[in-house]
């Protein structure tokens, strides 16, 4: 098995765990809050496991992502390292980890933190798959910022419909 394939498998598994974890965290949270408006010990335990899966997904994603970068350097295709899609993914990774810290220290409101996390994970997934995308770095980031606002509003509407207070 060649090393490129191993790295790709690691990257896909990391993405699946991260995107799946972010999605499940949102669903478990909504379900827990919908039942009685608070997170009990059992629900908290579920969320803890989901966040743990999400974190390991991120570790795998970052390590395999840098594995790709090493491969590009060794194979002599360094121009790929200046691809705007790649830099957008690097920035999204930083946004995800900083957002997690802000959520942990309650320096960001939960609705915004949740919208940023969900959008960033899905954006990283879409950027990874969208090989032929011809857009500059700032264009990509502006789209992501706009989508984050839409996700924030949509999540607010869902919470309102389910009568969930955050």
């Amino acid at each position: 098995m060649d090393i490129g394939l191993i790295i790709r498998i690691g990257h896909v598994v990391g993405t699946v765990l991260g995107v799946g974890g972010a999605t499940m965290a949102e669903i478990f949270y909504l379900k827990a809050m919908r039942d009685d408006g608070k997170i009990d010990e059992k629900e908290g335990g579920f969320l803890k496991v989901v966040y743990s899966v999400l974190r390991w997904g991120m570790v795998l994603l970052v390590l395999s992502g840098f594995g790709f970068l090493i491969l590009y350097r060794i194979q002599g295709v360094e121009e790929r390292l200046y691809n705007p899609r790649l830099w957008a993914k690097l920035v999204l990774t930083l946004i995800i980890v900083i957002n997690a810290l802000l959520l942990q220290t309650r320096k960001i409101s939960f609705p915004w933190g949740s919208a940023i996390s969900l959008t960033s994970w899905y954006a990283a997934l879409v950027l990874g798959l969208w090989r032929g995308l011809e857009a500059g770095f700032w264009e990509i980031m502006l789209w992501i910022a706009g989508i984050t606002v839409v996700v924030y509003l949509a999540q607010g509407a869902v919470r309102k419909a389910l009568r969930i207070k955050v």
Binding site: L63, G67, I70, L101, Q104
Partner: peptide, 27 residues
Amino acid sequence: KFMLAAHVLLGIVGIIAFYAVWMGLLK
């Protein structure tokens, strides 16, 4: 090639580990 890969990946492991320490200390 091995040294370059080790340099990058071990550095990333270091960053992840200290991020975990940072997060842990905020709890």
